[in-house]
């Protein structure tokens, strides 16, 4: 479903990803771990199409299509979703209105009928329960004055609304207490399906206690240097990243 071959990405002329390879099949959950500065967030932003991430080499095929040639919104139309590490606040943009625009923009692009206000409301209320998001937050401006945990819930709510084929969750666990982590993980688990692939980017093994990955990869210096199953995460938890960094060097 997603095939990344020898991906090289630079930011402001500085090479960050240096030949990254990764294949993800439908329905699989892949965790990507690694120390700070290893390029994990760069990978997620490059896949979502953020400006300023210059692809200097390699290719990314998503269901056989050249993902890197597409605008960020076109990637979303195909079913790519990026759950942000730091979701921005959008002053004056109502959360509910935003989600409806987002959902309907994607539906229009796919030639599907837009959801009317009633159908949308039913769906958003239903999904908000999944991540235990206070309905009051739907009426507020996007992320405006939300706590760290509320912002992350709002991200997973959007994932639930948009039902992506590929969800990239960038450090969704950062800044969460254990209760919030459980709720978020519960939401993500509920969204696991044979058609939906998930990339979990995380520093810590803790998240993987709640969302069990099929594969674990370790990034160092802009490449994946080791892949394994969930036991690799446990090994990292025990021994840290030092030994892998040494091996990779």
């Amino acid at each position: 479903m997603l095939s990344i071959k020898n991906l090289q990405v630079a930011i402001e002329g500085k090479d960050i990803l240096r030949g990254l390879n990764l294949d993800i099949g439908a329905g699989e959950v892949h965790a990507i771990m690694g120390p700070n500065g290893s390029g994990k967030s760069t990978l997620s932003h490059a896949l979502a199409g953020r400006d300023g991430y210059q692809v200097t080499g390699g290719e990314v095929l998503f269901d056989g299509r050249d993902l890197l040639a597409l605008e960020p919104e076109q990637r979303a139309h195909l079913g790519v979703f990026l759950g942000m590490q730091y979701p921005v606040e959008l002053p004056g943009v109502n959360n509910m209105m935003f989600m409806r625009e987002s959902l309907n923009a994607i539906r229009r692009a796919r030639g599907e009928e837009e959801l009317d206000a009633v159908a949308f409301m039913t769906r958003v209320r239903d999904k908000a329960r999944l991540v235990d998001l206070d309905e009051k937050l739907l009426k507020r401006n996007v992320n405006a004055g939300f706590s760290g945990g509320e912002k992350k819930r709002n991200e997973i709510l959007q994932m639930a609304m948009l039902e992506p084929k590929l969800a990239i969750l960038d450090e969704t666990d950062s800044g969460l207490d254990i209760d919030a982590l459980r709720v978020i993980a519960g939401g993500v688990n509920a969204l696991r399906s044979p058609e939906r692939s998930i990339i979990l980017i995380t520093h810590y093994q803790r998240l993987l206690d709640y969302i069990e990955p099929d594969f674990v990869h370790v990034m160092v210096g802009g490449r994946i240097v080791r892949s394994g199953d969930k036991s690799l995460a446990l090994e990292l938890e025990e021994k840290g990243y030092g030994w892998i960094e040494e091996e990779a060097a």
Binding site: G49, P72, E73, L90, G92, V93, F98, E101, Q158
Partner: peptide
Amino acid sequence: DPEQVFYLRSRGIAVDAARKMLCLGFAGE
């Protein structure tokens, strides 16, 4: 803010519509 524009685009909203939405948000107050 390019970060705000990107956020909206990553949710499937076309760039012009995203910019417009942020302008309307700015004026909303």
